Computed example of a mutant assay.
Amino acid sequence: MNNGENTTTHPQSWMISALQGMQGVRAAIVATGDGLVITRSDGIGVDEADRLAANICGLVSLAKAANEHADGRPLSQIACDYEGVMLLVTSVGQARNAVIGALTDPGADLGLVGSTMATMAPNLVGHLDVADRSAHTSPVR
């Protein structure tokens, strides 16, 4: 999956370092709610990470649309099982509109991976804030 490129120096790779070293985790990303990759693990190339982020964005959109059936509670996790290969998605917080996604190989400890993702999410919230740029932008002329 790596496409032969050196991807060990992502500016925000620390966000997924806890996942990328776990046994059975094939690849991990942090993405915005609208499908843009914030960071990715060494196990996934740029193009594949972009496609995965877009796919996760669609899954999250569907899950949020079904929210009425969950009494309006916020989305926390999504799991897709592809005959042993799992895609796990954890929300990083409704206000931040970002997600952590992990692809696992068969035999991965899904409970451990899922709980690691759930533990990571609140720790990422403050790092995903974007400063108000309205005072620094000039009006369009």
Rank of each mutant, 00 (worst) to 15 (best):
Leu75Cys: 01
Cys57Lys: 05
Ser61Ile: 01
Pro122Arg: 12
Met120Pro: 01
Ala70Leu: 10
Asp42Cys: 14
Ile44Lys: 02
Ser17Gly: 01
Leu59Ala: 09
Lys64Ser: 09
Val140Gly: 00
Glu68Pro: 00
His127Pro: 03
Ala27Cys: 05
Ala102Tyr: 11
Ala49Met: 06
Ala118Trp: 01
Thr116Phe: 07
Ala63Trp: 05
Leu36Thr: 05
Asn3Pro: 00
Leu128Gly: 06
Thr8Pro: 00
Ala66Arg: 10
Asp129Arg: 01
Asn55Phe: 05
Met117Gly: 07
Cys80Tyr: 13
Asn2Glu: 14
Ser76Met: 08
Glu48Phe: 11
Gly35Lys: 06
Gly21Leu: 05
Val92Tyr: 07
Asn97Phe: 12
Leu124Ala: 06
Gly58Tyr: 07
Ile78Leu: 12
Thr8Tyr: 10
Asn97Gln: 15
Asn123Val: 03
Ala102Thr: 11
Leu36Phe: 15
Gly84Met: 02
Val99Gly: 10
Met120Leu: 13
Gly24Phe: 01
Leu103Glu: 00
Val92Met: 13
Ser13Met: 10
Glu48His: 06
Val60Phe: 04
Ala108Tyr: 03
Ala27Lys: 09
Ala102Ser: 12
Cys80Ser: 04
Gly45Ile: 01
Pro106Thr: 03
Ile78Trp: 12
Ala28Tyr: 04
Met15Asp: 14
Leu124Arg: 03
Val30Gly: 05
Ala53Pro: 12
Ala28Gln: 08
Ile16Ser: 08
Asn3Ile: 01
Asn3Trp: 10
Thr116Tyr: 05
Gly107Phe: 06
Ala95Thr: 07
Ser115Thr: 03
Ser115Cys: 08
Ala108Trp: 02
Asp105Thr: 13
Ile29Asp: 08
Gly84Gln: 12
Asp50Glu: 14
Ser76Glu: 15
Glu68Cys: 02
Arg40Thr: 08
Asn67Arg: 14
His69Ser: 06
Ala131Leu: 10
Leu103Lys: 04
Arg96Asp: 09
Ile16Ala: 12
Gln12Ser: 09
Ala31Lys: 02
His136Phe: 04
Pro139Asp: 13
